[in-house]
Design a protein around this nucleic acid. Structure first.
Lengths: 216, 216
DNA sequence: GTCTATATTCAGATAGAC
DNA sequence: GTCTATCTGAATATAGAC
């Protein structure tokens, strides 16, 4: 979006079409299994043209990564107080589930496309930490609001488990239910599923709230 | 083990050394990233020799798969009654954690080495189902024994979550803690971690039992 | 059973015309 | 910007001598 939308008088959004097609193919078949020949075929252009827009296959990954980071920054910026925590958590939850679905290949095939740079590696590591830290903060606010009943020393483990269920949900669905494409039912199933991690510790009111707001 | 231990007068266990080296390399670096050249170098033999023992790279995978299935059959055969469920669960738990560690590449790189056959694919699917079914049975026995307090309609979701934490534990450790090699501390951390999924629903006695028996 | 040398395949990437 | 033609390199696999 920030990158040239309509440059001069050429390109009917070829770059964007390459990005869309490659994202879909990478997610579905895996980074290594998708050849650049396959991508260009899917877009309906020649391979040479693809190389004009992205000088290496890694450059393609890089572009997707930057788009993912925008989503991540947005969901990490969500504010919460004990008064607003239920709303905030429902929002955060939906965003992060969509994010791991949309960019599942980036999460899943890291070993295949490899570490791009030390700074990037460091950034990914920070994201994981910030995510679980944020989850603990959410839970503390829920406890303060009287919506969650759980000992404080269990919260870190709970946050890790919540993040695991979210982050591996696409892989799990694929393996157990053979679901490959994003679809609203599968997304809601994941959200409902992850609430099972602390459902019994929520007040009936909070449970009803999430059932309505988070996976309606 | 069932396959010729010492054939005639040759082979100082070359086949076994290939299996051991390839398993280690696959687990550490991923199936695709490990070349046959690398494997033979690691074993200290020529590449031609490797092809003598395994006619394709897939044959290597197949051998590891068969070994994994032996482990799986063993852990699926564990019996349990309400009287013995705590012991049985501790045993099952340790076995399954070790299994996903030892053969992590088979769980993780399925997309890379591909589906071998429809029957195999079906078998893998059945294993997943039998595992979660078995977990639900364990939980029911714990409830009957008065060691676990949880509504029956939460058990399926709990079983799924438990299986997720176990199955993805090696990947999670690698991503968050950068742990690559199997090690007793990491294994115990996983077991302890997975108990956080239902710890607060266990009696103090059961909690103490697992703390001593399952991750001592 | 083990080696060396060679073949095959194919993905990622370049050059240059249009 | 887009195409066609071509190159390069690496990985799986084979052939045949020892």
């Amino acid at each position: 979006m920030t990158k040239r939308a309509k440059p001069g008088l050429a390109a009917p959004g070829t770059k964007e079409r390459i990005l869309a097609a490659s994202l879909r193919l990478f997610n579905e078949h895996g980074y290594d299994a998708v050849t650049t020949a396959r991508i260009s075929e899917e877009v309906g252009i020649s391979e040479g043209n693809l190389w004009y827009h992205f000088r290496t296959k890694r450059d393609l990954v890089r572009a997707h990564q930057l788009a993912l980071f925008v989503l991540i920054d947005r969901r990490l910026a969500i504010q919460s107080t004990p008064e607003t925590v239920l709303e905030a958590y429902a929002l955060f939850n939906r965003m992060v589930f969509e994010e791991v679905w949309t960019y599942q290949f980036l999460y899943r095939d890291q070993a295949e496309y490899g570490r791009t740079s030390p700074e990037l590696e460091e950034r990914v590591h920070r994201i994981y930490e910030m995510t679980t830290t944020m989850l603990v903060r959410f839970f503390r606010h829920m406890i303060k609001a009287g919506q969650l009943d759980m000992p404080d020393d269990e919260l870190t483990a709970l946050a890790d488990n919540v993040w695991m269920v979210i982050r591996y949900w696409p892989s799990f669905l694929r393996e157990t239910r053979r679901v490959v494409k994003l679809d609203k039912a599968a997304l809601n199933a994941g959200i409902r599923h992850h609430f099972a991690l602390f459902n019994t510790h929520l007040t009936p009111a909070a449970r009803t709230f999430f059932a309505k707001k988070a996976y309606a």
